[in-house]
């Protein structure tokens, strides 16, 4: 250990932190105590290449947490880092998929997917190559010339994922991306997400309210309390990297989901009763 330090070789710790939150707190409105304390203080270390899900009752600040990592919102207190650098704006290398349909209706599918790349100074041939790959990966090849209005909700969400994928993000943040989809589509989209995660070796942070989704997809699941959101438990799922939606028949899937619900039940009740 000391030898490595002397040799000035960067030491990659077994838990190589990709993104780190320390004491992150977010208060909306005035800070004199009358504002809404939405989140924190929260500590979180995202390990490079892991699939981390966050579950919690509605309004617990899950989305605020994602906004802080995406550089769309700044913590009232605490620090946020991505790849060792403080987050001061939208960091390069971070991609976000939102819950709402964010595909642009005035652009065709391929133009939607190429949209971000065309503003980033990547040359035309490379854009064409990456767009082609992303369309193929998300099963959108046949719809390249179609417009979002002609596609189903699930297909439009694929367009948004492809649009993020072409930017080659090292950290992918997903804010309830399948919340608006039906159960079967959600399971299949979960498989796509796992495939994408394996292929790109990106770190994934998934915000979800679906416990089964979190139990099936993640390496680790963070359980948040009712507002102000705090992590009350972090669960290791122990799934192999090479997994898909068929693990729902594994007994551990049921145990994990049950464990998450046990942790969340009291918190969800708090939210329901408005306390």
């Amino acid at each position: 250990m000391s030898a490595a330090a002397l040799a000035q070789v960067p030491v990659v710790a077994p838990d190589d932190h990709h993104a780190r939150l320390r004491g992150v707190t977010r208060i909306f409105g005035p800070r004199n105590g009358t504002g809404v304390h939405a989140l924190g203080p929260v500590d979180l270390d995202l390990r490079r290449g892991e699939f981390f899900s966050v579950v919690g009752p509605s309004g617990c600040g899950k989305s605020t947490l994602l906004d802080v990592l995406a550089g769309l919102s700044f913590p009232t207190a605490g620090t946020a880092e991505f790849e060792g650098k403080p987050i001061t704006g939208v960091p390069a290398g971070v991609g976000v998929v939102f819950q709402e349909d964010a595909s642009f209706p005035w652009l065709s599918v391929e133009d939607n997917v190429a949209f971000g790349l065309r503003r980033s100074g990547v040359d035309g041939a490379e854009i064409a190559r990456r767009v082609d790959y992303a369309l193929g990966f998300m099963g959108l090849k046949a719809f390249a010339k179609a417009y979002p209005a002609q596609l189903s909700g699930g297909m439009r969400q694929r367009v948004c994922i492809a649009r993020t994928l072409v930017m080659q993000p090292r950290l992918i943040l997903l804010d309830e991306p399948f919340g608006a989809l039906d159960q079967q589509t959600r399971l299949l989209m979960g498989d796509e997400l796992l495939r994408l995660w394996r292929e790109t070796s990106a770190t994934v942070l998934l915000i979800t309210h679906a416990l089964d989704e979190a139990a099936m997809l993640s390496d680790r699941v963070g359980v948040m309390s009712a507002r102000p959101g705090l992590f009350i438990d972090v669960l290791d799922t122990g799934w192999p990297r090479d997994r898909d939606s068929r693990i729902v028949s594994h007994p551990r899937f049921g145990e994990l989901t049950a464990h998450l619900w046990e942790k969340l039940r009291a918190e969800s009740l708090k939210h329901l009763r408005g306390s």
Partner: peptide, 11 residues
Amino acid sequence: VYRRSAAVMGL
């Protein structure tokens, strides 16, 4: 979400 998407794509 349009403005947020634009922001995360670095526009």
